[in-house]
Design a protein around this nucleic acid. Structure first.
Ligand SMILES: [Mn+2]
Ligand SMILES: [Mn+2]
Ligand SMILES: [Zn+2]
Ligand SMILES: [Zn+2]
Lengths: 132, 132
DNA sequence: TTTTTACTTTAAAATCGTTCTAAACTACTT
DNA sequence: AAGTAGTTTAGAACGATTTTAAAGTAAAAA
């Protein structure tokens, strides 16, 4: 399925701007990035785009499940093109994130989900720091 | 150990402002809160404090390990008085966090820590959503 | 105790990531 | 082609957090 079809299937009009972003993000390579990172890539590709459009597009892509947003206490939002359930190493010094595939973690015992709620995904974060 | 001793032990001068905050936060009750939540509690206790001081203090307390900061993609920082290794349920709709004690989770299989790094803490986040 | 020093608090301004506004533009439908 | 609903944009606005710099305070030195 090409990017135009992916956008249509997600219920999004394949505008010029969304296609530029889809061509960068939906190439099957897993990556973590900020809105600013993406704008730099757009610029490097010879295009340009308003930061408002980039944020609009990332929000739409996220809400359609084309990308995810990482839980992070950094003040800049970090997005993730790996939409499978997976986990992360986090170097808190640098903010660097490294993917951990789902089958590399085995959660043997999980607490009971609170009454009235449903499990909506489990994420393991392993904080790491550089050896001295 | 009283709060003044706790601050000294952490290498922090026990100023009037830090003592007010310590009296609120270090009472042994686990809670999740924002800087604004804390300012409201300070005000309710008949005191007042500049928001800059509150941020300064929370950062010092966090860096000394007296409190933790939760990894969260919300745009407002959330702090945690539970400094033991533990886990959370997160209702992404409301942002509500519920503690999961460490012994309620059993991680059977963990990936190898990347070369040159040390494990600095594992956190499990279980996203939950209200049943319809 | 006084003096000195380094650290802390504060209000206000600045910064920074993100969202809003409203006008121009474009994709899709009829 | 004409209509319409959705999208893009520059720039303004916003909200959380940090910085500034001057005044205040705690600890150390004398
Ligand atoms: Mn955050
Ligand atoms: Mn922010
Ligand atoms: Zn990832
Ligand atoms: Zn907690």
């Amino acid at each position: 399925m090409n990017n135009k079809e992916k956008l249509r299937k997600a219920g999004l009009r394949p505008t010029k701007q969304r296609m530029i972003i889809a061509d960068i993000l939906l190439d099957g390579i897993d990556r973590h990035f900020t809105a600013e990172n993406l704008q730099n890539e757009i610029n490097s590709s010879g295009n340009s785009m308003s930061i408002a459009t980039i944020y609009n597009c990332l929000k739409k892509f996220r809400n359609c499940g084309l990308i995810k947003q990482v839980e992070s206490s950094k003040d800049t939002a970090i997005f993730d093109t790996n939409i499978n359930q997976h986990h992360h190493f986090l170097d808190e010094e640098t903010g660097e994130l490294i993917d951990i595939e789902n089958d590399e973690v085995n959660l043997h015992k999980l607490p009971k989900i609170p009454q009235g709620y449903l499990n909506n995904g489990v994420e393991v974060l392993i904080k790491i720091k550089k050896q001295i």
